[in-house]
Design a protein around this nucleic acid. Structure first.
Lengths: 347, 347
DNA sequence: GCCCCGTCTGTAATCGTTTTCAGCACCTTC
DNA sequence: GAAGGTGCTGAAAACGATTACAGACGGGGC
């Protein structure tokens, strides 16, 4: 691979001039510039990124740490980050699937000197602690940390509001015995959605029954299995709020297998509004989260923080959610089962 | 940020010793090692990646160039790449949405000196030419290039076989007038799938009718719109092979809006088997492509190539596809419309 | 006592850039 | 003709690590 020295030698100039030709271009004379450019393209030369960032302290890359790449939600987040990043000519240095905080810290260390900023999505409630030990000097934006976390820029989802809105909607439809299937313990989204469920009941003075809170883990099978416990209850609920759409798919399948009709025998609500929710049978009433926007805003925030020289004040943004009413909750006007009313969703 | 010099000074050793402590660890004495480690962790020191890779010529990152991050297919590919990469302790340097080859080349250049290998997914038929000008010295794996491309490692999809299998299945069901909705021109997947459609007809001696080949662009709305032209034909077909599942969703929606029943009035087949295809109404008969496997094998291939010192022989792998028969084609035994028979698809 | 060897550590060159500073022409101005 | 700009270019010092080479030290064998 040709280096700056090769170009300098063959163009009959110094390395400084070649460097200038690839950076400012204003200072160097027209004539020399052309010669350098010609030699460079003949040798297929381009400045080495590592050497460049060693001296300039800029890498034109932002680090992204995710719990896992699986699922539409995360991939939408990445897409949002990527689009914002490429507008500023930045690449993404990606690392995912960090089961525990130790792995997270290891990944973080490996990124030293390779990134200009960092976006971390760690739904585990105590992950942010791990961040303190690392990277004290580059901008950092957290996606969806716990409310207890402070001292960082963050952007999160209005989980509690969304869950409350959905459960209140079920209450409005006349349901009084409403179950919930929760996400994993220690997951911040799961905890906040559960809190929203409880808050809705409390506000409407409906007594909370602990046996109606069934543990799930955000996976489709766990939703399927939770239905067994739901149907075994002496006083069976008439509606269920499922803490994410993947589990809700499992719930719909299990109810169908059990011969129950949705929403007549059991109303169902989900969370996330993943793409396939509207194609389920019946289409799933759920809470829409703008995953793309989440990523995009996180990246935009990071870029702004990196640009402004004295670090701007910390901000904590909360992205609102919207209730999407479809057939599975039994509300009048909810979309009926039918494939793709496509025009409205074209992208 | 602490550098190796700070650690050396405070630990009372030379930088060489600190460096050794962070690399081999065998040569340096127990006692000194402990002291260096202690000082390093107190100063929160970790070797700078840029400096390291400048001298070692290794970056522990692989570059990934994609046309776009959108859609489940690509996100699955990335997931596959990521999993294979992290097994070898590698990060992903990601860049996507390269509309034209010029952008692709620019992204490629920016990665100089930052990656140990490169995976490029460029469905545009002439993109590989652009690669020649760049990175002649690191391993390169192409995902899904045209058949004409040679001289590179590649891994691709059996597009033609898959399309042929699906169309032959429709022929087996008795259909003789079968339309197709194609992907964009100059897209290699689209071209190969069209070729598979034509080949199936040819083999079964069914005459090809050009007006049955309707242009689409892989987007859901284009599928919806294509149906208008389909239904306007004097001799209306009884079945349609849609070149990807997103368009097929649009097709199902349009047929439903037109008051036609699937599969009775029109049989429909898709391609890709995206997650939501099985939840459509009726569930979509389609061709499954292992996107995760595609990414995973590409990364594995790259890593193997990077490890073996004299570059191993070029390989061109083709990932087989499988026909997935569901309700939309009208075959007996196809899955009927029902939400989530979930256990079998749990992940 | 001398030599040799093994074990550990330090010195310094190196990777490929950017950037400061100085220098060299050449021109203008008094 | 000297002084002072201008406009361009080159020499050399960083940046933060790795690693070849050499040196220091202690101990064992003769």
């Amino acid at each position: 691979m040709a280096t700056i020295k090769d170009v300098a030698r063959q163009a009959g100039v110094s390395v400084a001039t070649v460097s200038r030709a690839f950076n400012d271009s204003a200072v160097v004379s027209e004539h020399v510039l052309a010669r350098v450019r010609r030699v460079a393209s003949r040798l297929n030369y381009w400045p080495n990124g590592a050497a460049r960032s060693l001296i300039t302290n800029r890498t034109h890359a932002i680090g992204v740490l995710l719990p896992d790449l699986f699922g539409e939600f995360f991939s939408e987040v990445i897409r949002g980050i990527d689009h914002a990043a490429r507008e500023s000519g930045l690449h993404l240095l990606l690392s995912s699937s960090h089961a525990d905080t130790e792995e997270l810290v290891a990944a973080l260390r490996a990124m030293r000197g390779r990134i200009d900023g960092l976006i971390v999505m760690a739904p585990d409630v105590d992950a942010p602690k791990a961040l303190e030990c690392a990277h004290p000097d580059i901008p950092l934006v957290l996606i969806d940390p716990g409310l207890g976390v402070s001292g960082y820029d963050s952007i999160s989802i209005a989980n509690q509001d969304g869950a409350r809105a959905l459960v209140e909607h079920l209450l409005d439809l006349g349901h009084r015995r409403i179950a919930t299937i929760t996400g994993p313990r220690r997951n911040i989204d799961a905890e906040q959605r559960l809190a929203g469920y409880r808050l809705a009941l409390k506000r409407r003075r409906v007594e909370r029954d602990p046996e109606l809170e069934i543990a799930g883990d955000f996976s489709e099978p766990s939703g399927y299995e939770a239905v067994d416990r739901l149907l075994a209850l002496k006083r069976r609920p008439t509606a269920v709020f499922v803490a994410n759409d993947y589990m809700a798919i499992g719930v719909l399948g299990a109810l169908s297998d059990a011969g129950l009709r949705v929403p007549q025998d059991m109303a169902v609500g989900g969370f996330d509004d993943i793409a396939m929710s509207r194609y389920l049978n019946p289409p799933l009433t759920t809470v829409r989260v703008d995953a793309y926007g989440l990523g995009q805003r996180a990246a935009a925030r990071l870029i702004r923080a990196a640009r402004t020289s004295p670090a701007p004040a910390r901000t904590r943004e909360v992205l609102p959610t919207t209730l999407v009413i479809r057939g599975s909750c039994g509300a009048a006007g909810g979309e009926r089962s039918r494939p793709g009313v496509t025009r409205s969703r074209a992208r």
